[in-house]
Design a protein around this nucleic acid. Structure first.
Lengths: 331, 331
DNA sequence: ATGAAAGCGCTAACAG
DNA sequence: CTGTTAGCGCTTTCAT
């Protein structure tokens, strides 16, 4: 059943059928109704490939993230998909992994699908692991609009939507210090843009509050609960009275360590995680965690994308404030 | 830059270029090399839409799940994507939600994309919520091969790959009883095929071991840690000495309740979760959990799909055994 | 408001 | 092994 069949059955030309399919205003309501009736009756669906060929678009956006099995990204993908679908876009998903060359490959591959826009989830696409060569992004941006969720690079055609990790960390550290904490452990697990921003917030807050930045208090470990626990056990690093982690998994690892050392949370050690995931509620005691506004970021990205594709111009950088979800704190 | 340009630059016909693109064996290595050189040099990429039109396929498979932000599904999608990409398939993802009509819509919508196969993740597609009308699946199966991950319906064209929830639950309950547990709470959160199977395993094990099936010990609650805790608190149901939950989130909710009641785990109450997620390791004490073999299921699905698309016939049902990951048990 | 016809870029007989 | 050519199903001028 193709457009010719419908045209014949409806007694019109294929051009008219096409116009009806695209809801063109220059078809009389009467004809529209007639054609639509036939389409319904025949259960006709336009061939998306032919349509794509003609329009050079299949109304599809590409979503690339290092790993959807990560809670943060899974959430992001879920929200993105939801908003994109709301506006009739389909999503093609690609999980690139974390290695630079794999990320480049994934981006180049998905571009061949002639997507209408590309969304990169997670700040790992903005300068991770030392390789700062962002050419593949500017190249991509030359073909379609590129959106960076929670990352930032300065490059025409790349639109960045991110939460203000720097600010919230700065504020939290300042508050911790004000409430008497002196040795705050900073736990992170990546060199991504957002991790660096958080670290900067941590260090600046320490400095601005007259405390030294101690290397021994900045620990980099894979985001696995038991790995973190293990590392802390090995280092026998018990000399801290607060922990700030860039992810809830890390925070829980620290929590386990602290409890194992017989110290109590939050009295002896205050622990704060990031992303406000189920992990923060699962552990005992529950932990405060920063809501990094995943849903808002996703909504903003999709709305911006629509603006852009509709011909409007949009800002290259949009920053959203984070907010702390407090649980069991001492103050 | 299209096939004509390449043909001209390489001094061959478009047919030859097309053959090279598709790596047809009937082109001399010499010509292939020549054409490939030009393609490289011009950075040529075949237009996927035109290709789709000609082949009536874009080498894409549809993945539909109720909600990727759920850990189990996120994992499944990650594995599926990985294996599919390995064989050159792209994935289009659709999150349908849990409502029957939304599931039907999602399936019908994604079919219009002329995907090569459809994968439905989670047993919610096989008879959930009372509505047993599986017509939309058999209809879908009429158009493309349909794979059900962890669900089972008897329908030609629908291939089911699932883990044996019935058996593992039956075995675990039997063991619990043998080790002296008498009142085992069964916590579940859906009416899906797999939940029903687990419940059946629970009930049959009780019966076969001479214990009654008590309604008060079967509690249905949303899979949210705090919701479960809340429900148990309201019911003041403390009269159980073991818990079997169909998901780790539920198990953790029960754990919190048990600890709150001042009873100890696993001495007073043994708790076992499902899916072996991070939650099982995050809580304190860590919980045993059933590995439902997500990766194996995904790999099996993708391999089966390839067999099928290659013209071989495959079995309509493949069952994989689960396995228990023990942590802090009493026996 | 509608139709005729020329593409869109590629695949796949068919012919040599 | 290579080239010619007729589609694939739709969009879109350009007429009318």
């Amino acid at each position: 059943m193709n457009i010719y069949d419908i045209a014949e059955l409806a007694g019109v030309s294929i051009a008219t059928v096409s116009r009806v399919v695209n809801d063109s205003p220059k078809v009389s309501e009467k004809t529209k109704a007639k054609v639509r009736a036939v389409m319904e009756e025949q259960n006709y669906t336009p061939n998306v490939f032919a349509r794509g060929l003609g329009l050079n678009s299949m109304h599809t956006v590409g979503i690339v993230c290092p790993d959807v099995s990560d809670t943060y990204m899974a959430n992001a993908v879920a929200y993105l998909e939801k908003y994109l679908r709301k506006y009739g876009y389909d999503c093609i998903l690609s999980c690139s992994g974390y290695k630079y060359e794999d990320k480049v490959n994934a981006v180049q591959q998905i571009l061949q699908k002639r997507i209408d826009a590309l969304i990169l989830v997670g700040s790992n696409y903005a300068g991770d692991g030392g390789n700062l060569d962002m050419d593949y992004l500017s190249q991509a941006a030359g073909e379609v609009p590129v959106f960076l969720m929670n990352g930032y690079i300065r490059c025409p055609g790349v639109y960045c939507v991110l939460s203000d990790g720097y600010q919230i960390v700065y504020d939290m550290v300042s508050e911790l210090i004000e409430s008497g904490r002196k040795r705050i452990l900073f736990l992170y697990d990546s060199d991504s843009y957002s991790a660096k921003e958080k670290k900067r917030g941590y260090e600046e807050a320490l400095r601005d509050n007259g405390l030294p930045v101690l290397e021994e208090l900045e620990v980099f470990e894979q985001n696995k609960i038991l790995k973190v626990l293990d590392t802390l056990l090995k280092r026998k690093q018990e000399d801290f009275d607060a922990v700030l982690a860039t992810d809830d998994g890390l925070a829980v690892g620290a929590l386990k360590y602290v409890k194992m050392m017989g110290r109590s949370v939050p009295q002896d050690v205050e622990i704060i995680g990031f992303n406000d995931s189920e992990l923060a509620v699962c552990c005992d005691p529950e932990l405060s965690s920063v809501d990094s506004r995943g849903e808002l970021l996703c909504r903003t990205i999709v709305e911006s994308m629509r603006q852009l594709l509709a011909g409007h111009s949009i800002r290259h950088k949009k920053v959203v404030p984070c907010r702390l979800v407090k649980r069991n704190t001492t103050n």
